[in-house]
Write a protein that binds this DNA or RNA. Structure first.
Lengths: 239, 239
DNA sequence: AAACCTATCTATAAATA
DNA sequence: TTATTTATAGATAGGTT
């Protein structure tokens, strides 16, 4: 695609390698973007330049893509980088159980069913393996939640500790405050509030776990973070 | 690059979309490969087709790339103006006079989020209480599943026991069969199969635990492709 | 579906500013 | 060095088999 044909091997000249890197990187991102639009696919591209700089493209949140990726069986082959000729790359298609025709089951229906099952209902149709898998997932979930709880508790401890110190500080060195109780309460309030705010902010957000049997209606949403620009490509200065 | 210019918008025709998907996917992978070689870069590409199938390319182990990616601050982002192109859904459009636009969350969205959280993702917004509640639910779920597993195991035991008895019976009273090994294997097979059948029957229905997160669009179940009816025979997951 | 064709369109190597 | 230009190699849309 240029003035002359080239062989696909590492470009030794630094500056032309950089130029080519920039051009082809952009080209790749463009192609990725087109593919995602034309074929309604979810595409994520991650590139580390030889200097270690990160460039990425994703037509949806990269995080989502990676999460999805990790939830799939992550087997794959390990290529053996041979210097000279063709590289054997990991270029795989991981098919999966797959959804067939009658799989037209509505996503919502699917999700609902899954959720029900996660909560121990409607387990009859599952194979032993499915059950085991689900149990594992749940166990994973519990662990994640426990971590989060711990983390949350620690964070709060930190805040409380500071609060306390502040209070002691002020108690031991009562200054110009006209009413000692005033600063005390206001201080407490302000800090506490910041904590509550965090929770409250997500109050509606928190899942409604009493969904035991009352699915079905739309409800107030858990504010989804910056769902704004679904597309992004990182572009940093040249190297 | 073809007989005619095309605009970058979702290809509506299913089969040509699939063809294009395949071609461009390969093209993208090739470009990715060339880039990695020419410029000595580390490149990973992850693609989920609209049917949820995963395709990936990586010139080194994808795992390494993702690890590296996660270790970098996911800073960056020069958002790119995406194509205008709206979800042209015949009906469910902006019929609703915007009420807290992003305050109303689609039920599916809700379910998905909940499910994600059940699996330990996206827990940041939850309060301590929510977390505790969720953990409890998960624990409940696990117990239910354990019960179900036990029950299933017992049922299978029962079947196997019968099988065994039958076998013994036949063994002790060898009848007119010419080859005793024949009935043996066939018998085993038939019964085993009936068990498997039960599971398999629900195989598709069974939850897809890699529920990921790509339920981006509302689909309104258009006419079902009739051409795909005999498809069930092909494409079986060997497992 | 998969493979092949080929007219056209794109990406880009190399030159140039 | 980065941006622009331009000649070509390469990718691919739409057909055909």
């Amino acid at each position: 695609m240029g003035r002359g044909k080239i062989v696909i091997k590492k470009i030794e000249n630094l500056s032309s390698r950089q130029v080519t890197f920039c051009k082809r990187r952009n080209g790749l991102f463009k192609k990725a973007q087109e593919l995602s639009v034309l074929c309604d696919a979810q595409v994520g591209v991650i590139i580390f330049s030889s200097t270690g700089r990160l460039y990425e493209f994703a037509n949806t949140k990269m995080e989502d893509i990676l999460t999805k990726y990790n939830n799939k069986g992550t087997e794959s082959s390990a290529p053996e980088p041979s210097e000279d000729l063709e590289e054997t790359d990991t270029d795989t298609e991981k098919s999966q159980p797959e959804q067939d025709a009658n799989e037209v089951m509505d996503e919502t229906e699917m999700l609902r069913l899954t959720l029900m099952r996660m909560m121990g209902k409607d387990l009859d149709g599952l194979s032993f393996k499915d059950l085991q898998q689900m149990e594992d997932k749940l166990a994973e979930g519990i662990l994640a939640i426990k971590s989060k709880k711990e983390q949350k508790a620690l964070t709060e401890n930190e805040i409380l500790r500071k609060e306390l110190n502040e209070m002691r500080q002020n108690y031991l060195t009562p200054i110009l405050t006209s009413n000692p109780l005033d600063w005390r309460s206001s201080s407490l309030k302000s800090t506490t509030k910041s904590v509550d705010q965090e929770n409250e902010h997500f109050a509606d957000t928190s899942l409604q776990l009493r969904l035991s049997s009352d699915f079905g209606r739309k409800r107030k949403a858990p504010k989804i973070e910056s769902s704004t620009s679904p597309e992004s490509a990182s572009q940093v200065a040249s190297e």
